[in-house]
């Protein structure tokens, strides 16, 4: 078998890497990789190849030999003729596609969990600082399991009269209205949601809804209602108990100061 030239090997590495990233990693193994990330990897590979061939003069000569041969050698006349047609044609097609591409709307970068304010309020009443407020019924979990159960039951009722249309029967954000809302309703079965936030954070999100989000959260898009207009403070705390009780995830807490 004829030994492959350095140029061909480099070409194979380049094309192979692209196919691997685009179709194998970004298709068979995982979800598609963004074009910009692929471009970055490809840039690295090109640099690696350039470094490799410029280490020694002989390597560089070996690398460019097939290019020069194709340009002038009589043996390579056929290659030359094919390439002189193919290269301009590909460039023609590529530039046409770029120019004729129709413009797409700008994506809207949105922070799904923006920073809360320092103070937690219900309507205009200040409850305390976001850091320190705890669910006033949480202690029943240890002190009085019967009372705790009653609060969870009430939270369940509130949830199913108000929240499940969007957040779903299973609290997985897949209520029957959910598919056609943007942004999508929160999925409380996602292990990244409940354990990452304090109960005061959930109180804030429920009480103030979409319109209460800071600008980074896209307050104009979210269909989350301002629940302090319809629910009492206790109902909100109860529904938070239900969220963690049903999913089995505990909201984040900070240990008591010693």
């Amino acid at each position: 078998m004829k030994k492959l030239s350095l140029f061909t090997i480099c070409l194979i590495i380049l094309v192979g890497s692209w196919v691997f990233l685009r179709f194998v990693v970004g298709g068979i193994i995982s979800v598609p990789i963004p074009g910009s990330v692929i471009a970055m990897y490809m840039g690295l590979i090109v640099i690696a190849i350039l470094v490799h061939i410029s280490v020694e003069d002989s390597l560089f000569r070996e690398f460019r030999r097939p290019i020069l041969e194709t340009l002038v050698d009589d043996k390579r006349r056929l290659h030359r003729r094919v390439l002189v047609v193919l290269i301009p044609l590909l460039l023609l097609g590529y530039t046409y596609l770029i120019i004729a591409q129709r413009a797409n709307p700008p994506g809207s970068p949105r922070d799904a969990h923006p920073s809360p304010p320092l103070e937690l309020t219900y309507k205009d009443e200040v409850i305390g600082t976001m850091q320190d407020v705890v669910n006033p019924f949480r202690h029943y979990e240890k002190d009085d399991p019967e009372a705790f159960k009653a609060h969870v039951e009430n939270g369940k009722r509130v949830y199913h009269q108000n929240c499940f249309y969007c957040h779903g029967d299973h609290l997985d954000g897949q209520g029957h209205f959910a598919p056609y809302l943007q942004p999508l309703p929160a999925n409380f079965q996602d292990p990244g949601i409940i354990p990452n936030f304090q109960e005061s954070f959930f109180f804030w999100r429920i009480a103030k809804g979409g319109p209460g989000l800071p600008a980074a959260g896209g307050p104009w898009d979210s269909a989350m209602p301002v629940w302090e207009d319809t629910l009492t403070k206790d109902e909100i705390w109860d529904v938070i108990l239900f969220l963690s009780d049903y999913t089995g995830y505990q909201p984040r807490t900070f240990g008591e100061a010693h």
């Binding site: 044609l89 460039l91 097609g93 530039t95 120019i99 709307p105 943007q182 104009w220």
Partner: peptide, 28 residues
């Protein structure tokens, strides 16, 4: 509905018939 997007789709630029052949010629 929540917000969707609407656009008066611009008529494709006539540049698409000028630049690609130019680039092809330059490459030759």
């Amino acid at each position: 509905t929540s917000w969707y997007t609407f656009v008066l789709e611009p008529v494709p630029s006539s540049k698409r018939f000028v630049y690609p052949p130019l680039i092809a010629l330059l490459s030759v």
